[in-house]
Amino acid sequence: MFARTERLTLRPGWSEDAPALLAAIGHEVVARNLSRVPWPYTLADAEAFLTNWQGDARPTFLIFAHDGGRCALIGGIGIGPLRDVPHMLGYWLTPSAWGRGYATEAGRAALDIAATLGIGRVEAGHYIDNPASGAVLRRLGFAPTGTRSTIHSRGRGMTVETIDYAIDLSARRLAPRLAA
């Protein structure tokens, strides 16, 4: 699956993306806000991640920005299982891409694809010390569930408290197109 927005291309990761992936995600400030990403992050981690991606049919993408005529890997976004939640949204951006609206733009595209695939409910969360991620979730239409949970962060090497969110995508599903 691929998606194209005004400023972004979302596509699966390929093995040749490993060096760019390392450069984009290999920041402690990124890894510390993710549950599955180790710190330090190495080229071997990037290669393993991309190798495991092959054949994954879930809406999971690398995010590429089109700035100044060049296309650069700036992040990742996906909807997939985490613990007992079947459809959990996760995303990250490299620090130079923060504050530019890319997470919201990529999130809208990923949620549209999820709705088209028939996914009705998506959950998400953010660490309590990362309110910027909560702002992105609210811009995407997620609502706080009123609950908090904990998850182990490999980047921090500890359990972290999260604020939980959810969104119902049933109204977002695209109507089937009839052939003329």
Rank of each mutant, 00 (worst) to 15 (best):
A171C: 10
R121P: 00
V122W: 05
D84S: 13
Y165W: 13
P86M: 07
P59Y: 11
L34R: 01
L8W: 09
G80T: 01
D84H: 12
I77L: 06
G80I: 02
P176D: 12
R83Y: 11
Q54E: 15
D17Y: 04
R148H: 14
G55L: 10
R148C: 13
A109H: 07
V136F: 06
L62V: 05
A175T: 12
I63D: 02
T116H: 13
R154C: 10
L8E: 03
I79W: 05
R70H: 12
A109I: 11
A135G: 13
A175S: 13
A132T: 05
L174D: 09
I79H: 07
A31N: 04
D56S: 14
G69W: 11
E6V: 11
L140V: 06
I25E: 06
W98Y: 14
L34I: 05
P95S: 08
T60C: 13
G141N: 07
N33D: 06
E105N: 04
R7Q: 13
L50K: 11
D56Y: 09
A46Y: 02
L174N: 08
T42D: 05
A124F: 03
A20D: 14
A143P: 00
H87K: 02
L21I: 03
A171T: 12
E47Y: 01
G157W: 06
R108D: 01
A143I: 09
A97G: 10
L111S: 03
L117T: 00
L8Q: 03
E28I: 01
L111C: 01
R108E: 08
T147E: 15
G80D: 02
N33F: 08
G101S: 10
P144N: 00
R138V: 14
G69E: 09
A23C: 04
R139G: 02
S149C: 08
G76V: 01
G107I: 10
A97I: 06
T51E: 15
L174R: 15
G125D: 12
R36E: 13
S35P: 00
T9G: 00
D17A: 04
D17K: 03
R32N: 02
G146Q: 09
L117P: 02
L73F: 08
A72G: 05
P131M: 09
I167K: 04
G120E: 15
A106R: 03
S35Q: 07
V122Y: 07
P131F: 07
R11G: 10
Y165M: 05
R177D: 10
N130H: 15
P176F: 04
L140A: 03
T147D: 12
Y102P: 03
V29Q: 14
H87I: 00
A132H: 06
A31W: 07
V29W: 00
R148S: 14
I77M: 12
Y91H: 11
P81C: 09
S149N: 10
A3R: 15
P38Q: 10
R156H: 05
